[in-house]
Amino acid sequence: LRGEGFSLRRFQGWIYLVPEPGFEPDSPQELMPAQSIAWGGWRLVLEPAANPESVLPPIRVSTRQGGERIRLHPDGHSKSLKNWLQEQAVPPWERPRLPLVFAGSGDDAELIAVGDLWCSGQYSGSAPAAGWRLIVKREGD
């Protein structure tokens, strides 16, 4: 059911009031330190933690393209992002709009964050291993 600026949706027995999405770039965006990016109702920023000594790899933000894999633990196995989002009960209309954050470039790029649902320990917590903290928030939070 659609209204002006919103829609009502049903998922797993619940009714959701879903606002129309904000601006979402149509191509990946590079995230630079201390620079904020607005991404379809999300705000992302990369800030230094204490005194970062490591060189920051290229960080880019994009949406799902298909085939992405998530590694929840550094030494753990990876699993398909599609299956992980289903296991987390993320509503289907949110999945294609979630900002995905990758570190590195080309085929070596590693998924380091999925919206505000998960962030690699290298870029989160009080002492992130990379020396940089990734903040991902929904607008209005």
Rank of each mutant, 00 (worst) to 15 (best):
P19S: 09
L117A: 06
L8M: 12
T63E: 00
Y16H: 12
P96W: 06
L117F: 11
R43V: 13
A49M: 05
A109E: 11
Q12T: 00
S36K: 13
G115H: 09
G115P: 10
S105L: 11
P28M: 04
F6E: 02
Y123F: 15
L85D: 09
Q12P: 00
Q29D: 00
E53Y: 03
A103Y: 06
P28S: 11
S80W: 00
S78A: 14
S124W: 03
V90A: 10
P33L: 07
F6M: 09
R43N: 09
R60W: 10
L44Y: 06
L17W: 13
E87N: 11
G115E: 04
Y123L: 08
Q88W: 13
L72K: 14
R95M: 14
P91V: 03
W42V: 05
S27Y: 08
A34T: 01
Q86K: 08
Y16Q: 03
P21F: 01
P57V: 08
P74T: 04
P99A: 13
N83I: 08
A34E: 13
G40C: 07
F23A: 14
E94C: 07
F102G: 07
E53R: 14
W118K: 13
G22V: 04
L98E: 12
E53T: 14
W93E: 10
R64Y: 03
W84M: 08
E20G: 09
P74M: 02
I59G: 12
W39M: 08
D107G: 01
G121I: 06
G22Y: 04
S124C: 13
Q12I: 01
E30L: 15
H73M: 11
S27H: 15
E20V: 06
S36M: 12
Q12H: 12
E87D: 15
S36D: 06
L8S: 05
L85N: 11
E87H: 07
L117S: 02
A89N: 12
R10C: 13
P28K: 05
R64A: 15
N51T: 14
G104H: 06
R95T: 08
H77Y: 05
S27W: 03
R60T: 15
